[in-house]
Design a protein around this nucleic acid. Structure first.
Length: 562
RNA sequence: GGCCCAUUGGUCAAGCGGUUAAGACGCUAGCCUCUCACGCUGGAAACUCGGGUUCGAUUCCCGGAUGGGUCACCA
């Protein structure tokens, strides 16, 4: 077989050589140890948590090492492509601090355009490049055309549908398929010529030289040394539309674009032998690989499953809607990614997670369960450290979008809102009431007359007359100008006058000697003013609320009790 | 089913031949306290199972079990 002739027959339109293309992609001039990484999504939907996870690793590794982080759009499957998905992807990533140095990024007008010298960064624009290398492989007898159509293959394989996959006799399946491929390998030139002349479409398959019985040792930066069988499958390089498969595009692009570290989910591990073979066939240097563990969730049966796009917490917009800030999500990701992150963060409470020395060796090899409890904890800490102005702005913006009634109230008087958010904020041990921005409303909504309702009832066991007496004498004695101690002394005096202990220690020593304690008396007032049994320090609340509002609420409560 | 990967409390995880097996989240008891939220001090809770190797295995090796991933002209 004259492979040169075969190559010309198949790709007459390709006149460039691999060397021509290589010349356009000179080696990057970067400092020693600088890593070049990329995020290479297919524009089929939104970025989900499982995608943000490895891209965070890639971004950190590149920027931490003074390298390059770029975005490549893997739009090689027109059937699955979703219009606008790529733009959405980029915007979402940006919200989570993932910024690209080069690649297919957004220009000023919100359209995707290339930045950098190693493009084009959209695979659909690189057909000529892939075909050049495919032609070369054919010329070298390392790849061949296959005219068996998808339909024929399906018929042969009998199953391709998800439901049937469990019952598949995989061995028979593989053997049939392999037999077919083997038969197609030995097409004569005449047969090929005839097929081409008749206009039959073809795919280009690799001529696999591996032996699945033989193992190949490979070192993954996360997984360590693994043993995998050599590839003996004639997988597709170029689909019949001339567009490459993932495998081929990966080899060609990551080589040309100078990727030093390929970071991807561990679901790619089984196809690694294909990639190793391809790089060897093409004469490319193999990049370093990091196959990172997947994020899991628990299914109905209590089994771990890969977090899928439909799951709660998969779509990053879920977090926005629930009121988790990007900072919190990023920090949570860091805790999952590097086991020593939390320790570092405790020692460097004021530093950004981007200052954390991310360490590949500290990465977990096994998948972890997504844990909302943990996210809440991380988020509470993040929110508790914000300034009052900052949290006010964030909650207001959030509420304006997701809870307009609340948002409008907040926005109407920002200074008032900021005073509320300032309660217990800023000290060494700040309050941690909010896990999400959405928690703000139940926490402090009572400050607003429009949102105020009496949520909690007075517990059983207290004389209504005591409550009324408390409210009336409290109101009579209240002076806005009082300092906190004076204010509380007055509350204590009321407690004493009604037979409630003003001294908590005395009360605890002998509860039966009193009707209750000053804690109860405070509660009488608190419920009237805040509508709740639990609220931040009542004195401060009243200072913010002002005498008029407080008195009105007390009066309302007295009336409702009578 | 073949192949690959994994397996320390409920979750995330330190550990890398000899430890009272860290820590964080969650749960919980108590303290502090006008309630809450913090904070502090405690508590319950773990090495998947067999075989080896070794004076000694959570740690090393082999096998089983379990879980996950993957087996397309999808990425």
């Amino acid at each position: 077989m004259d492979f040169n002739r075969l190559a010309e027959l198949l790709f007459p339109q390709i006149t460039t050589s691999p060397a021509d293309i290589e010349a356009q992609y000179p080696a990057r001039q970067l400092p020693e140890g600088a890593k070049v990484t990329r995020f290479a999504p297919s524009p089929t939907g939104f970025v989900h948590f499982g995608g943000l996870f490895p891209s965070t690793v890639a971004e950190r590794l590149a920027h931490q090492s003074g390298g390059v982080f770029y975005l490549r759009i893997e739009d090689t499957d027109a059937k699955r492509e979703v219009p606008g998905a790529a733009e959405g992807l980029i915007k979402t990533l940006a919200r989570y601090g993932i910024e690209f140095d080069e690649g297919a990024i957004l220009d000023g007008s919100g359209k995707i355009s290339d930045k950098g010298n190693y493009g084009p960064y959209k695979q659909s624009l690189r057909g000529n490049i892939y075909q050049t290398f495919a032609k070369q492989l054919i010329r070298e007898g390392k790849a061949y055309p296959c005219f068996t159509t998808e339909e024929e293959l399906d018929a042969l394989a009998s199953v391709n549908k998800k439901e049937e996959i469990k019952n598949t006799d995989w061995q028979a399946e593989a053997e049939k398929r392999r037999a077919e491929m083997l038969a197609r390998r030995s097409f004569t030139m005449e047969e090929v010529e005839q097929h081409i002349a008749e206009g039959h479409p073809f795919v280009v398959r690799i001529l696999a030289d591996g032996d699945a019985e033989k193992k190949l040792k490979f070192t993954d930066l996360v997984k360590g040394t693994i043993e995998i069988p050599e590839n003996d499958e004639d997988f597709v390089l170029l689909k019949s539309d001339g567009i490459p498969t993932y495998h081929f595009a990966h080899a060609v692009d990551d080589h040309l674009m100078g990727t030093t570290h390929v970071i991807r989910g561990e679901e790619w591990l089984p196809s690694l032998p294909k990639h190793i073979q391809l790089f060897r066939y093409l004469g490319f240097k193999l990049p370093k690989y990091m196959h990172i563990a997947q994020i899991m969730k628990l299914d109905e049966l209590g089994n771990k499953k890969k977090l899928s796009k439909r799951d709660m917490g998969a779509n990053m917009d879920d977090y926005t809607r629930m009121g988790y800030t990007p900072e919190a999500v990023c920090e949570y990701i860091m805790t999952l990614l590097n086991s020593n992150y939390e320790e570092w963060h405790m020692q460097n409470p004021d530093k950004s997670y981007k200052d954390f020395p991310f360490n590949i060796k500290k990465m977990s090899v096994s998948g972890c369960l997504f844990d909302f409890n943990k996210l809440d904890d991380v988020s509470k800490n993040v929110i508790s450290k914000m300034t009052a102005a900052d949290i006010t702005a964030k909650v207001t913006d959030w509420a304006l979008e997701f809870d307009p009634e609340f948002g409008t109230e907040l926005a109407a008087d920002r200074e008032f809102a900021e005073k509320i958010f300032a309660i217990g904020r800023g000290g060494k041990k700040p309050r941690k009431d909010l896990a999400t921005l959405a928690d703000a409303k139940p926490y402090m909504g009572f400050f607003y007359d429009k949102l105020f309702t009496v949520q909690d009832q007075y517990p059983e066991g207290f004389d209504k007359s005591d409550i009324i007496a408390t409210l009336e004498s409290f109101k009579a004695g209240y002076d806005y100008a009082d300092d906190m101690n004076t204010w509380f002394d007055k509350v204590k005096a009321i407690a004493d006058s009604l037979g409630y202990a003003s001294d908590m220690k005395a009360y605890k020593a002998d509860p039966s000697a009193f009707k209750g304690s000053v804690a109860d008396v405070s509660m009488f007032i608190r419920v009237a003013i805040t509508g709740k049994m639990n609220a931040p320090d009542l004195y401060t609340v009243m200072q913010i609320l002002g005498t008029d509002k407080c008195f009105k609420r007390i009066d309302n409560m007295i009336n409702s009790l009578k």
